[in-house]
Each structure stands twice: as structure tokens, then as C-alpha cells.
Write a protein that binds this DNA or RNA. Structure first.
Length: 494
RNA sequence: GGGCCGGUAGCUCAGUCUGGUCAGAGCAUCGGACUUUUAAUCCGAGUGUCCUGGGUUCGAAUCCCAGCCGGCCCA
């Protein structure tokens, strides 16, 4: 702590001592408020509307944080904020003969309980005329500046509590996120899915193309991983006869951090027996559309300067056709790495980082197709090489029944008709393992023998889905950075 | 991993190009005035690891190098 900062803290600690010397506990165990700020304001307004010429209310007790003082000698105004809103307090010496001097030992940032009748000042502001007040928690560090608030992005992430105190927008996003998650839950439950919890610590980090975090369990003396997806455990449950399951939870990927990626993020996954990817597509549309209605009140959101309309149906776009249209490349005709790489180079797509055929296609899609997918849309029917857990199409065994949803040029979901043929599934895992060995690529999906045994016991026809919750919150809140929708984003240690 | 931008008081920011009364402002804090203010107002005061470490120079917040942290773009 710097000299000056410690000086500011020291002054507040002195006030703390002065409060205690008066016999006041600056950190009482409890305080019963009669009204939230919102309720108190509503009470006064309804009292006014009842037609009395002198609107009066019973005494209210409110509690909250003091965010500003306006001292005027023998009267002092203060603004008090709680979770529901802000209300002005007026302290007048003649109303507080014993307590008024105590104000000198209060600071911006302190939590206070205040009791008194409500009235309207001559400028029209509803105000508590304080007759009694109680220190609820003395703050010994100063709050950010009252007008600009906390602006420094790094401080906002590292000390999110200060961001929440200072910035209305941060509070809005936190609440919006909660509404989205609970809306997703209600939607899934309304369709008779049951919510389950599967392991976060897993022996095999399978189920997605991703680099896992590793850890070690001491008692078992074995390496464990943080899950990169929920997928394989949820499918085990479908094998077990839980026909409609979903999980909302963190998954962890040990990869780069940027605008769209945090190492831990929240994913909804669902699996539904007797459904295929067409059913899942309809469900995604319904889910997202109903969420917009529920939390935004409109199917149209403004994002990155564009209006995005989530009203179903969203176009189904054939992946290979889209690639042809936007790059001129026919990936199905170039089923080897080098020819595809050469074709991509010739149209100006950077390929130096890509080693596998699937990786090249992925790059081609993100470079040429995704930027065009502004309005909600689905890309359907992916090459089998990049989809080791999806079921092949009956009419073309090079493709699988898989789709991804895109909005504003970014992916929001990934889904397929699940591969339930245990022989094919084993072969696909073996291909992934071979690719990993060949390219030394830790991102390739992993053989999960225990999962294969489950599938060998018979998995019904099933449609599965993964939706990135963080992406939805970004879209709904209008923020292009995942760090704005995650309360505590990952940062380097200082 | 590469490029660009940023880091100055508790907070919000000037000052850096052009090295030399450049250690500044506002808010906050402290003292004083004020009983209907609301970014209250008025008078007065204190406050710094100029991100860190080197270097150049008579002299560095300012120029150079390296590093740390953050942001954006690219990979």
C-alpha cells in the first residue's frame, strides 16, 4: 500500500476507533430493514397517489451503502444504495440532537441503516428524513471516484466488486446472465429434461477437440484432468435409460485467452433419446428465441452495430456448399491434406498452423464462411474427419449429421445425431489417437475405453447439443468480450 | 507467438511528440462556511515507486533497451 493510500486507510481506522469509543459497534451482527429502497420509494409514490394533500408514510428503515455525502452545515444529504435502488437521506441536526455529530465519523462506502419518514424535497426527490441511523459496516478503503466510477479495465476485472459498485452496466450484465441461465433451465425442464451433474475431474479428457488441464490426485496417486466437455458422461446416462438429460456447468480448456475464450467457460449440454439433429436444431431455435422473449422482451438484439433477429426458423446452410460459395474450394474433392492446403493457400487462407485435414477445413470455415453468418443460422453436415462423435449420413458416409449454430459471425452451439455404433465409434477414436501421434497434437479427441464399453451396451438413437452460455450472454448483453460477461475472468497474476 | 496502443495521486485524467518552475487538475481526503442539496457551492490545506530495471544526458515521467501488467489486431 502506498503512503497516501495508507494515509486514507489510517484516517478511516481512526474514525473506526472513535465509533468504538462512543460505544458503537461498527460491525453489528444484524439489522432489520422494514423496506428495500425500491419498496420504500413505491410506498411513498402510492401514498401520494392515494390523494392525500400531504402525503405521509409510516417510518421506514432502509439499509445500504452510502455513495455520496452533501454536507450543508446543520443538514447533510446522502445517497444510500441497496440492491434495489438508490434513495436520498436527509440528516438534520434538530432531528438528530445526539447522532448528528456521528456523521463526521462516517465515510463514503460505509453501510448504514437509516430510519425515518419519507417526504419529497422541493426539488422533487423522495427522501428519508432520518430520525435514527445505525452504522452497519465501516469501510476502511475509499470507493472509486463518484462521477466516472471505475474505468480501468484491469481493475474492473481484478476487483469486480468495485466494478459492480461503480458501474450500472456491470450489474446489468450479472443479472442478465443469471436470467439467461435460469431461463435455459426452465426451458429444458419444461421439455422434461432432467438436470444432472457429471464429473469435473476425469481420468480421460475426452469429448471435444481441446487441450486439457492436468492435475494429480494424491490419495489415488493418479493423474486426473479437468473436463473439456460433458458429452461422454451424459451419453453414458442415456445408455442407462435417462432419456432426456442436460447439464449446465464449467468446462476447462487449456488454450489461449482472447475476446471469445476464457480457460473456463460455461456450457449447456443436452442429450435426448429418440431425437436426431433436426429435432435438436428446432429445439435450439425455440430455446434461444424464448430466451430473448423472456429476458430481453424482443427477438431482436443490437450487437456490434447490427440488428440480429432470433425469430425462427434459422436458415440451414449446407457446409460444403457454403465453403464452395465463399472460397471456390470443393473440400470433398480434395480429401488429402496437401491438395487442400494448396487450394487454401491459392485463395489466400493462412494454413501454416494447420496439420490435419479436419483442421484445415475448420480454418477454411472460420476464415471464409463464419464471417458471413451474421443473422442466426445453422451450418449442417460436416465431414466425418472433424466429427468423431457424430453419426454418419446414410446417403454419404463422408459426412455426419452435425450442425453448428452461428450468430454475428461466431459459433454458439455444436450438435449432432450421436454416434451409437460402437464399432464405428472405436474406429473413430483410433483415428483421433493416430492423428494425435502423427501430428503431436494434444487437441485431438481421446479414446475413452470406459465410454466405449457403455456404448457397446447399446445407446438408443440420440440427438445431442452443446451451447456456449457465455456466448449467449455476450450476444444478449451486446458485449464483444467474454471478460465482460464472466464475473472473474482469468488474468495473469500481478 | 507477432504487431500496435496504454500504465502518472485512492479514482478519472492532462503533461511524453519538442528532455530543463512538469509533479499538475477534478473527484475523494483534511480544516472552515452553509438546515431542501443532488457531479451541491464557496474559502483554505495535504497528498506521488510518474509500472519495474538498466542506459543516454549536465539534467529523464518525457529519449533508448529489456522486462512486467492490461487492451486491441493478427496467428
Amino acid at each position: 500500500m502506498s503512503e497516501l493510500e495508507s494515509e486514507l486507510v489510517r484516517r478511516r481506522l481512526t474514525k473506526l476507533d472513535k465509533l468504538r469509543a462512543r460505544g458503537i459497534d461498527p460491525y453489528p451482527h444484524r439489522y432489520r430493514r422494514s423496506h428495500t429502497v425500491r419498496q420504500a420509494l413505491d410506498l411513498f409514490v402510492s401514498s401520494e397517489q392515494s390523494g392525500a394533500c400531504e402525503p405521509t408514510t409510516d417510518t421506514v428503515s432502509v439499509g445500504g451503502r452510502i455513495i455520496v455525502f452533501r454536507g450543508m452545515g446543520r443538514a447533510t444529504f446522502a445517497d444510500l444504495v441497496d440492491g434495489s435502488g438508490r434513495v436520498q437521506l436527509l440528516f438534520r441536526r434538530n432531528n438528530l440532537p445526539d447522532l448528528y455529530d456521528l456523521l463526521a465519523d462516517l465515510d463514503i462506502g460505509d453501510w448504514l441503516g437509516a430510519t425515518g419518514p419519507l417526504f419529497r424535497t422541493r426539488t422533487g426527490e423522495i427522501t428519508v428524513e432520518v430520525r435514527k441511523f445505525t452504522v452497519l459496516s465501516k469501510a476502511i478503503r475509499p470507493l472509486p471516484e463518484k462521477f466516472h466510477g471505475l474505468v480501468d479495465v484491469e481493475s474492473r476485472y481484478r476487483q469486480r466488486y468495485l466494478d459492480l459498485i461503480s458501474n450500472e452496466e456491470s450489474r446489468r450484465v450479472a443479472v442478465l446472465r443469471s436470467r439467461i441461465v435460469s431461463g435455459v433451465r426452465r426451458f429444458m425442464e419444461s421439455r422434461d429434461f432432467i438436470e444432472v451433474e457429471t464429473p469435473t475431474l476425469v481420468p480421460v479428457a475426452a469429448g471435444a477437440t481441446a487441450h486439457p488441464f492436468e492435475t494429480h490426485h494424491r490419495a489415488l496417486d493418479r493423474k486426473l484432468y479437468l473436463r473439456v466437455a460433458h458429452e461422454l458422461y451424459l451419453k453414458r446416462l442415456v445408455v442407462g435409460g435417462l432419456e432426456k438429460v442436460f447439464e449446465i456447468g464449467k468446462v476447462f480448456r487449456n488454450e489461449g485467452i482472447d475476446l471469445m475464450h476464457n480457460p473456463e467457460f460455461t456450457m449447456l449440454e443436452s442429450y435426448e433419446a429418440f431425437a436426431d439433429y433436426n429435432d435438436v436444431m428446432s429445439m435450439v431455435e425455440d430455446l434461444v428465441y424464448s430466451l430473448t422473449a423472456e429476458v430481453l422482451g424482443s427477438p431482436v438484439v443490437e450487437y456490434d452495430g447490427r440488428s440480429i433477429d432470433f425469430t425462427p426458423p434459422w436458415p440451414r446452410l449446407d457446409l460444403c456448399a457454403q465453403i464452395r460459395e465463399h472460397s471456390g474450394i470443393d473440400i470433398l474433392a480434395l480429401n488429402d491434406i496437401e491438395p487442400l492446403k494448396a487450394a487454401m493457400k491459392s485463395v489466400g487462407v493462412e494454413v501454416s498452423q494447420q496439420r490435419s485435414w479436419g483442421g484445415l477445413v475448420d480454418k477454411l470455415v472460420s476464415a471464409r464462411v463464419e464471417p458471413n453468418l451474421i443473422q442466426p443460422s445453422f451450418l449442417v453436415d460436416y465431414p466425418v474427419e472433424m466429427s468423431p462423435l457424430a453419426k454418419r449420413r446414410t446417403d454419404d458416409s463422408r459426412l455426419v449429421e452435425r450442425f453448428e449454430g452461428f450468430v454475428a459471425g461466431g459459433e454458439i452451439c455444436n450438435a449432432f445425431t450421436e454416434l451409437n455404433d460402437p464399432v464405428d465409434q472405436r474406429a473413430r477414436f483410433e483415428e483421433q489417437e493416430a492423428l494425435r501421434d502423427r501430428f503431436h497434437d494434444e487437441e485431438m479427441d481421446r479414446m475413452d475405453e470406459d465410454f466405449l464399453v457403455a456404448v457397446e451396451h447399446g445407446m438408443p438413437p440420440t440427438g445431442g447439443l452443446g451451447i456456449g452460455i457465455d456466448r449467449l450472454v455476450m450476444l444478449f448483453s451486446g458485449h464483444p468480450s467474454i471478460r465482460e460477461v464472466v464475473l472473474f475472468p482469468q488474468l495473469r497474476s500481478r
